[in-house]
Design a protein around this nucleic acid. Sequence first.
DNA 1: ACCTGAACACCGTTCAAGT
DNA 2: ACCTGAACACCGTTCAAGT
Lengths: 215, 215
Amino acid sequence: MARSPSATSPSPEPKKPAYHHGDLRRALLDATVQLIEEQGLEAVSVREVARRTGVSPGAPFRHFPSRTALLTAVAEVAQERLVQAVEASLRNEDQVDPLLKFRAIGRGFLRWAFANPTHFQVISSRAVIEYERPSLRERNDGLRGTMHALLTQAAATGGLRPGEVSRHVLAGRALVYGLARMHIDGQFPSWGVDGANALDESIAILDQFIASISA
Amino acid sequence: MARSPSATSPSPEPKKPAYHHGDLRRALLDATVQLIEEQGLEAVSVREVARRTGVSPGAPFRHFPSRTALLTAVAEVAQERLVQAVEASLRNEDQVDPLLKFRAIGRGFLRWAFANPTHFQVISSRAVIEYERPSLRERNDGLRGTMHALLTQAAATGGLRPGEVSRHVLAGRALVYGLARMHIDGQFPSWGVDGANALDESIAILDQFIASISA
DNA sequence: ACCTGAACACCGTTCAAGT
DNA sequence: ACCTGAACACCGTTCAAGT
């Protein structure tokens, strides 16, 4: 299982530092993601990540002040991907009906969360993201603004049922968040939905919700 | 900090075992709940629980085979309380309209979850409840059946918007679950809702959802 | 029958010392 | 500037030995 990378380096010049070097930070991040994917969030230990990256137990602390900070960094990467997936889903919606665009956002969220359960778990596990990076904040606020604008537009053209627009927005968000969490918490089976159908069923539920708030 | 309980027992007969004795299991459960309430779920260690109960590090393992099993036991107690709170909320609803009864279930869920965030967190943290106790299963299924029956009744009397009843049920459940999780995950502030108003706002969102699915 | 206390193999984190 | 490796104070879990 153990390899000695120095066995095949005859040149005595600067050749020895082969891989633990330039971008240890990224290597640590990659190893963490892989470890989460293999064994789950709880299995992540700084020492194991260091081991997989081939560095000493203390090395990661040069790049992340704590285990939590390491996971926060992973969560930021994941959240960025989620937002991008949602934005892409919105762009790919060719309908102009604002409610259908709103639905495309929700569908994008659900698809990404179900396709990347471990990443979604990291994102939504509290106390892991403690300080909010402004860039992410901005992006998130942007998406929220888009959702609000879409429903406001729907309301203006008489396509939305009565009620506070911001509450409709939050209901939609809570609905998809709840569905995604129920999935990673393994709750669908006890609600009569086979795990394999969970995504399709969730999308159907979202669609029915959209239909419900349509005038 | 340390106490010696044997100092004040002159009788040589069965009097010495003063407190770590009869129901250590319950004492451990209580100490765990208290620890969670004080320091959060992550701070729970078997050793600390043992320390607080005044027993040796290995003692808890006579009653719970693992740390996870200990937390599972706590989760079961919490889930039982949640179900009871929801059932009480339903009983206290004096309206006969099935949709209002359905709403009372959701409100009961929200109120309990917001009033007992740490307990709710334990319940909804995956991999903590691994084996399902039949009694809880039954109760949960019972509640699900009640929700389904209420919406079926509403549909029969023409009070429900078109759509699959079971999907309306699941939407309602996912909505309140999502709202409760957003709360304990601290997400309301970034959605423009002050933490102090989170419960009232959540109830308002639920009410609006109920109104949306009303015919 | 139930608990103690030592033991084992881990962990997060720090910090001098090395290159 | 970045990493090593020893050290410290924890942890979950096991198990002989005590009562």
